[in-house]
Write a protein that binds this DNA or RNA. Structure first.
Lengths: 156, 156
DNA sequence: TATTGTTATACTCTATAACTATA
DNA sequence: TATAGTTATAGAGTATAACAATA
């Protein structure tokens, strides 16, 4: 006798929780994050690293505090990420001569090359991970999430 | 001289990463999860606990493995949640007489009452956390996430 | 004093591997 | 051998608090 496993109910979030959109949101977000990390994996970085590389590439040398504020993460989170990038020679810390408490972080040439390579894969995310959505639906999703996000947007 | 912090750029995800919808998705999902936990906090449970209570309330006594499969989480994740619910007298484990490897988990009367109280707060989530979205937009979001989720849906 | 960066800690979510009791 | 449950560990995300160096 085979016990019923309950696995046949296929939706990512079970019908019993269909009124809990937060569940659907977190399950989808987690799955997307993993696929995103997989997209960058052959470059030996994760999505979070690409975010840092991109920010440094666009906004030039930044203090870690600025980097954290711009990426909307805690300063302590940045330390590990920059450690990892620096360990691989993709970014460098150097003292700010005007304020020696500050470490300015900037991309190395190697980091700039990796950023360019990583940027090329972003299109793949749209194509593969979000393949189920048409262009219009994709923009709809972005718009809805953006609208929703105003609730937690820094007002200062 | 005041250093530029970069905090004035208010969107939850910075413009430099506007092509990374996965970032927006995970930031929003995390924020929603916290607000959801806050919604249930006065009942001294988190959203995850409500999910378990609901599943037990709707599907009756379940083996932990079934519970895990239905909630789409790992069996090891269930252990802690059931431990916590059992510790508060909201659920009980009892041996399955037909297969003594199995613990059947079921709600206590206290658990049923708490489930009812928690269910009443779900509407508040829709009203408060998703306040920025109209009814139509809310359903649109649900539909888009659902469409997207088919990518990771268990096909077996 | 206040700020930058660092470290340690903690708490969420997730899952894998190894162990036990049982089948 | 295979399965149910448990435990330990680990990796992703988040953040807070304390500390050294510097302003």
């Amino acid at each position: 006798m085979t016990r019923t496993t309950g696995t046949e109910g296929r939706p990512l979030v079970p019908e019993e929780l269909s009124d809990r959109v937060d569940c659907l949101l977190s399950k989808v977000a987690e799955a997307v994050r993993k696929d995103t990390d997989a997209t960058f994996a052959s470059l030996d970085i994760r999505g979070a690293h690409h975010s840092v590389l991109r920010m440094l590439g666009v906004c030039g040398p930044l203090a870690q505090k600025d980097l954290a504020a711009r990426l909307r993460v805690d300063s302590s989170t940045i330390v590990d990420l920059v450690d990892q990038l620096e360990g691989r020679g993709l970014a460098e810390r150097r003292r700010d001569l005007k304020d020696r408490r500050v470490y300015l972080v900037e991309l190395t040439e190697s980091g700039q090359r990796l950023l360019a390579a990583a940027d090329e894969r972003v299109g793949g995310l749209r194509r593969d991970v979000f393949a189920a959505l048409s262009a219009a639906e994709y923009e709809q999703l972005r718009g809805l999430l953006d609208k929703l996000s105003t609730r937690w947007t820094t007002s200062a």
